[in-house]
């Protein structure tokens, strides 16, 4: 294991559209790397370049230090789910995996194994044309896992999945990373990566806007803020403002306080005789952290 993906200075134009403009980042093993950004940020193009489907105009994408195109049995190095809809509708899921397996010299036993891994056994011998989007995602993931590769790329794997499916994928992604694999997961919705991504690459307009580790990011976004629950919202806001804090209303009985430590907040409220139920350190969601990060670049909201 311990294979990294290095994306270095990728540039790519499609006609007049600039899809990638100096895209640079590294995907490390042992952690799920979230690849986020709005549609059109260049996430899919970057992934297609990594697996050799598109050629960059400039820059390089290396898997374990070598170009994907030079790999002998590439699916044993990199597994990718790029387009779950790319199936021959008349072919069964098992046969779809079988031809992929044969192209890598992998046997039918592994095919049945990955079918089990993604929970497609009951439908494996049905034509893929009748599959729901969720089943296609599972089939696409099975295809990516076929060669048991140390690097996995998933482009929008949560699309079309029900909450149960989303939970399942999160678990799968975590366990893949825990096994030492480098896992890159793209999404245009931050919330999907909550509690999964250990590292975040934010892309916009074909380049990396932010490349941070998630724990630090959330800590930074939560930094010094206090969550307060109180029934006397107006009084509390007045008292805290007098003490020099900035107060944001986040719910009918919750406030977020910044600029005033927790102890000072409690003291201020007590002094003003404002009742409160709970005071605690605020923990930002990934969504909030993302907003924080991208506040300045309005262009890609």
């Amino acid at each position: 294991m311990d294979v990294t993906v290095e994306v270095n200075g990728l540039r790519k134009r499609f006609g007049a559209t600039r899809a990638l403009d100096d895209m640079t980042f590294t995907v490390r093993p042992g952690v799920v790397t979230g690849f986020v950004g709005p549609n059109g940020a260049g996430k899919s193009t970057t992934m297609r370049i990594v697996v050799g489907l598109d050629r960059p105009d400039a820059g390089s994408a290396l898997v374990g230090g070598v170009a994907y195109r030079t790999l002998k049995r590439p699916l044993t190095h990199v597994g990718a789910l790029l387009d779950a809809a790319a199936l021959q509708p008349g072919r069964t899921a098992r046969n779809h995996l079988l031809w992929l397996a044969h192209s890598q010299g992998i046997g039918a036993r592994r095919v049945d194994e990955v079918i089990g891994l993604v929970g497609l056994e009951p439908a494996a011998r049905r034509r893929a044309g009748g599959y729901s989007l969720g089943m296609r995602q599972r089939l696409g993931i099975a295809a990516a896992l076929l060669g048991d590769p140390p690097v996995l790329l998933f482009d929008e794997p949560f699309n079309g999945l029900d909450p149960e499916g989303i939970g399942w994928i999160r678990g799968l992604l975590r366990s893949l990373a825990a096994g030492g694999r480098a896992v890159l997961v793209s999404s245009h919705l931050m919330g999907e990566l909550q509690d999964v991504a250990g590292h975040l690459i934010v892309a916009g307009r074909g380049r990396v806007v932010a490349d941070r580790d998630v724990a630090g990011l959330i800590a930074a976004a939560s930094d010094g803020r206090v969550t307060l629950r109180t029934t006397a919202r107006e009084d509390a806001m007045e008292a805290l403002a007098r003490a020099g804090a900035t107060v944001t209303v986040t719910g009918s009985d919750t406030l977020t306080v910044s600029g005033l430590p927790g102890a000072a907040t409690v003291a201020a409220l007590t002094a003003a005789g404002v009742p409160f139920a709970e005071v605690g350190a605020h923990r930002a969601t990934l969504e909030e952290a993302y907003m924080e990060l991208t506040r300045e670049s309005v262009e890609f909201r």
Binding site: V51, L53, R69, L75, D83
Partner: peptide, 18 residues
């Protein structure tokens, strides 16, 4: 052409990048 129509050519070429 069926592979192009379905986008399956991507899977084929990712499996045989040469």
């Amino acid at each position: 052409t069926a592979e192009y129509r379905r986008g399956l050519i991507g899977a084929t070429l990712a499996a045989s990048p040469g």
